[in-house]
């Protein structure tokens, strides 16, 4: 049996769900735009500080497909650059949250006892505070910046991963293969990361791709509240919030940026569905 074989079968299983393939295509498109933004965007210079009052507040037209904002910048170009920001934000926050949450959940469930009580109570405390409020509280400490926003969101997000991993590992803790590894003399680290973690991977991957959507939304909310990336960085959330001042006359500002967020979130959610189907059978 060749190595490519199970992967091919996995893809077939994933592809059986048409919607998740559509989601993957959406993400691929967004990713492509984000990576090659300077080449894809019709007016790449509009991502920065550009003032062009001659073309300000223009509705969608052949020249500016999605119209222009109040200082005359092309909305489409800014959305394409905004994808960069959103994807990076999602990727950084989700990977930080997964790393921290996984370690906490794994250690708590495997070691048990006092370690478990302390770690899981701390997790519960974090869970008790709404993510947005927690992130805002952290951001309130100092000047808003993209980096701080990402750290704040990761801090708000990791407890969910800790809970997820904790639940899985708790149920596997006394499975035969764990005992077998312990009897052989495998170190706790080896048992946790070599034996138990691979069994969490499917759920973590599925949750990660769901979270990408939610985290991007949370990031957009923070930007909307003026706590995200400072201007002139093109940020989808900021664009929605700024555009909302001009509703309903300059409708394209908020609606297009909002649709862009919707596309990313939808793409990741559809892929998450497909991933869940994929791992369900093997699990």
């Amino acid at each position: 049996m060749s190595k490519a074989d199970p992967r091919w079968r996995g893809w077939r299983r994933f592809a059986r769900n048409r919607l998740s393939v559509f989601g993957a295509a959406l993400i691929a498109l967004v990713l492509f735009c984000a990576l090659f933004a300077p080449y894809v965007a019709p007016y790449p210079e509009h991502a920065g500080v550009v003032v062009n009052f001659a073309d300000a507040n223009k509705p969608p037209s052949a020249k500016y497909w999605l119209g222009t904002d109040s200082v005359g910048r092309d909305v489409l170009s800014r959305i394409i650059f905004g994808f960069r920001n959103s994807l990076m934000l999602g990727a950084v926050v989700v990977s930080l949250a997964i790393s921290l949450g996984t370690i906490v959940g794994l250690v708590a469930a495997y070691l048990g006892g006092k370690v478990e009580s302390v770690l899981m109570r701390v997790t519960d405390i974090f869970l008790a505070i709404p993510s947005l409020v927690l992130a805002m509280a952290i951001l309130g400490i100092s000047q808003p910046s993209q980096m701080l926003a990402m750290i704040a969101m990761a801090v708000a997000w990791w407890p969910w991963h800790a809970r997820l991993v904790y639940g899985i590992v708790r149920s596997l803790r006394h499975e035969g293969f764990v005992t077998a590894a312990e009897v052989v003399g495998a170190s706790p680290l080896k048992v946790m990361f070599g034996e138990l973690l691979p069994n969490c991977a499917p759920n973590l991957l599925t949750k990660a791709s769901l979270d990408m959507g939610f985290v991007i939304l949370l990031g957009a909310s923070l930007s909307f509240l003026g706590m995200g990336a400072p201007p002139p960085t093109p940020d989808l959330g900021t664009m929605v919030s700024e555009g909302s001042q001009y509703l309903p006359d300059l409708w394209w500002l908020s609606i297009t940026a909002g649709l862009a967020i919707f596309v990313i979130v939808l793409g990741f959610n559809l892929v998450a569905d497909g991933l869940r189907d994929l791992f369900d059978i093997v699990g």
């Binding site: 499975e175 035969g176 293969f177 005992t179 077998a180 590894a181 009897v183 052989v184 003399g185 495998a186 080896k190 070599g194 034996e195 691979p198 069994n199 991977a201 093997v282 699990g283």
Partner: peptide
Amino acid sequence: QIGLVQQNPYSTLNPRKSIGQAIGLPLSVH
């Protein structure tokens, strides 16, 4: 010096690892 064979063969092998990896674990630990 001591080997263990457990009761339920459906739980003694990690579903996420290949047979070779399962047997390889004691080989690598020791």
